[in-house]
Each structure stands twice: as structure tokens, then as C-alpha cells.
Amino acid sequence: MSQPGYVIRGKANPESLSSASHGAGRVMSRTKAFTTTTRSQMNKILQDNGIQLIGGDLDESPMVYKNIEDVIAAQSELVTVLAKFSPKIVRMADANRKEGRED
């Protein structure tokens, strides 16, 4: 939510099965995010970065993801960065309305 987004082009490196990551990756599980993060922590990060969030819940908090800059740097042999952008409005699934979730 709060980190830059990247538009990349894969280099089709056969040693990586012609693949690259599709995101930063998590540093904690969704369950742990619900028990160790707070709405006020998430809102402060979003406010500090000037981001409006529509939907979303604590399991998608910015602090539960790896640093995207580190992830992109680690993929220099896999991808070429074409563009970088900073989000200002983020739309996530509504709380308690995750796709595929049975209630």
C-alpha cells in the first residue's frame, strides 16, 4: 500500500525458470498481522505517505511486507525496471470480504 509500485519486464533468465517475483512478499502471516498490528499503526503509515485506502484490513498492512526496494534490487538479473510509481489511492478487498473466503 505505501511502497512504490514497479512496471518491469522479465529478462527470461532460464536459471530462474524465466520468472520473477510478483510482489514484495510477506514478513509475517495474515494471522500474525491481525494479532501484532493495529489499525492506528496502519493509518499512520498511510497518512504519512498521503495514501487513501478503500477497503483493506490489518492482514494487508504495509508493515507486513518486505521492503520492495530490496526485492527489486535482488532481482536485477531477472527484470528490467521500466517505470516506478507511488500509489495515492489503494483499493483492497473490504474487511471480512476476501475473495474465496467462506463465511
Score class of each variant (00 low, 15 high):
24 A>I: 07
24 A>E: 06
71 V>Q: 03
69 E>D: 15
36 T>V: 13
55 G>N: 10
25 G>I: 05
36 T>R: 10
92 M>R: 10
47 Q>W: 09
77 E>C: 01
79 V>L: 09
73 A>S: 13
91 R>Q: 03
4 P>A: 11
94 D>S: 11
5 G>F: 08
14 P>E: 11
29 S>M: 07
68 I>R: 05
26 R>M: 02
47 Q>A: 15
82 L>W: 02
26 R>D: 06
41 Q>G: 09
12 A>T: 02
102 E>F: 10
34 F>R: 15
34 F>K: 13
99 E>I: 15
93 A>L: 09
34 F>N: 13
44 K>G: 08
100 G>A: 08
4 P>Q: 09
93 A>W: 02
3 Q>D: 15
5 G>K: 05
51 I>G: 02
32 K>Y: 04
55 G>A: 07
23 G>R: 08
31 T>A: 13
12 A>Y: 06
65 Y>A: 04
68 I>C: 02
35 T>L: 12
75 Q>F: 04
15 E>H: 11
26 R>G: 03
92 M>Y: 04
22 H>F: 12
49 N>Q: 10
68 I>V: 14
43 N>D: 15
2 S>Q: 03
100 G>M: 13
72 I>D: 03
49 N>G: 01
97 R>H: 14
3 Q>I: 10
28 M>Y: 11
34 F>M: 12
8 I>P: 01
24 A>S: 14
89 I>E: 07
13 N>A: 04
32 K>L: 13
42 M>C: 06
52 Q>T: 15
66 K>G: 00
44 K>P: 00
102 E>R: 09
20 A>P: 01
36 T>G: 03
42 M>P: 02
58 L>I: 04
68 I>E: 06
19 S>P: 00
32 K>F: 02
33 A>Y: 00
68 I>A: 11
21 S>K: 13
8 I>S: 02
28 M>Q: 10
49 N>K: 14
7 V>R: 12
103 D>S: 10
78 L>I: 01
20 A>Y: 14
32 K>E: 14
48 D>E: 12
99 E>H: 06
58 L>R: 13
74 A>K: 12
55 G>M: 11
29 S>L: 06
21 S>V: 11
75 Q>W: 04
45 I>Y: 01
83 A>H: 13
58 L>Y: 12
26 R>P: 00
61 S>T: 15
89 I>Y: 09
92 M>G: 01
59 D>H: 03
56 G>H: 08
83 A>W: 08
85 F>N: 09
93 A>C: 06
13 N>W: 03
50 G>N: 12
79 V>A: 04
48 D>G: 04
60 E>R: 15
75 Q>Y: 02
6 Y>E: 10
18 S>E: 08
69 E>P: 00
9 R>H: 03
23 G>E: 08
47 Q>M: 08
15 E>C: 02
97 R>E: 15
62 P>D: 09
101 R>Q: 12
57 D>H: 12
42 M>L: 06
66 K>D: 02
70 D>P: 00
64 V>K: 05
78 L>F: 05
8 I>L: 13
23 G>K: 07
7 V>Q: 10
45 I>K: 06
